[in-house]
Design a protein around this nucleic acid. Structure first.
Lengths: 149, 149
DNA sequence: TTCCACTCTGGATTCTACTCTGGATTCCGC
DNA sequence: GCGGAATCCAGAGTAGAATCCAGAGTGGAA
């Protein structure tokens, strides 16, 4: 079924977003995607804002956020009743996580980059490379110990 | 049980790494952590290199890598029999993923940052903010459609 | 030399996040 | 207006990752 006007069916949304149809319905069931309006026949009808939201969810999943995290993030957008302080708190907390993720990824990037380069330079990768990858962060780990369940 | 010399028990490793004891044994069972030497009584005895490896796994999980991905990454370090070309291929493939993740996280960082700032500036967060978060990437999504299962 | 926290094993269970099934309904090109 | 594709729904099933459990053994402090 083709998009009609600005609206499209779940199949089209699935294609555009790269998210499985079943998964979209699942997201609706658990409440992180809203129930969209329906056609006369009961088909879900989506618009661009839903596509963006869904893409956001998909990417966030790929970035290692749980559905719980994502629900929280989306919550600060959805629920206008949050106070500013609350919005800020959630935002800042998540920022913390995000920045740590960026740093870790950058480290990983460097290591892999070096590894590929050494290799193409004909060096046998003599690797305790990854072994020493997150070496500097022992401190961090210790701090995090409690938090970890 | 305290650390003895350079070695420590699984409980201590768990504390330092923030990874559950059960999970550590599970990682050993599935082969992404090596079987450590044992004490006379059969207790696992770990050293720093294992702590680093475990931290690496934990962080990678938080970054959205599957255990399969991680196994692959660690594989290029562990198995000296990989050819240079293979090492390079894995490294370059992962680099791609990693760079995309970094970019997405940076976008997210900007949005949340703005949100927190607006808020502290006394603005009511008038948000289709996240709604428009990954707006630019529709193209990407279309390209990715096929890949998505 | 006992006590209690810690660890062992192997198997069962749980949790999260989907994914599938199947029978009914709707849509739409021919 | 018919047939095949798309969608609906409820509920069951699955994969991956982790966590729990029971019963037995270990180790070190008092």
């Amino acid at each position: 079924m083709r998009p009609r006007g600005q609206e499209y069916t779940i199949g089209v949304l699935s294609q555009y977003s790269g998210v499985n149809i079943e998964t979209i319905r699942y997201y609706e069931k658990i409440g992180i995607m809203p129930s969209p309006p329906r056609s006369n026949g009961g088909y879900r009808l989506y618009r661009d804002s839903q596509l963006r939201r869904l893409s956001f969810i998909r990417r966030s999943r790929q970035l290692g956020f749980s559905l719980k995290d994502i629900r929280r993030l989306l919550g600060i957008v959805d629920d206008k009743s949050y106070t500013c302080a609350q919005v800020q708190q959630v935002a800042l907390e998540q920022l913390d996580t995000i920045r740590r993720k960026i740093i870790d990824l950058q480290k990983l990037e460097t290591v892999l980059n070096d590894m590929a380069a050494d290799c193409s330079g004909g060096l046998v990768p003599d690797c305790p490379v990854i072994d020493s990858l997150f070496e500097q962060n022992g401190d961090n780990d210790l701090i995090l110990t409690k938090e970890a369940k």
